[in-house]
Amino acid sequence: MAEISFPLPDLGEGLLEATVLEWLVKVGDQVERNQPFVEVETTKSSVELPSPIAGIVLTLHGEPGDVVLVDRPLITFAVADDSAGIVGTVPQEAAPKRRVRLSVVLDED
């Protein structure tokens, strides 16, 4: 297993921090990609943040009410070693599908 941490992303307009309102996952949970994992509030709005990867939650960096800084770790996941890297997805091995059939008369000489 490998550990991957994600920082609080820049939520726009130059804000440098956000307050954790509620964790939507707990340590040990299996989280899917794009599943919301935390609700945070900035001075102007509150949002849910989707998980950038699939993995098992190892650490939640902060309690509800804590202020977290942009670019500081927010959550750490354990991911399988054979999962994709920071970007992309592992191609699925599927049985080859075809629509084209070959039809030729081979006039071998």
């Binding site: 309102l21 509620e22 939507l24 609700e39 509030e41 102007k44 709005s45 509150s46 949002v47 849910e48």
Partner: peptide
């Protein structure tokens, strides 16, 4: 008022 809206 600001943060109630995203409450689960």
């Amino acid at each position: 008022h600001t943060n109630a809206v995203s409450s689960r």
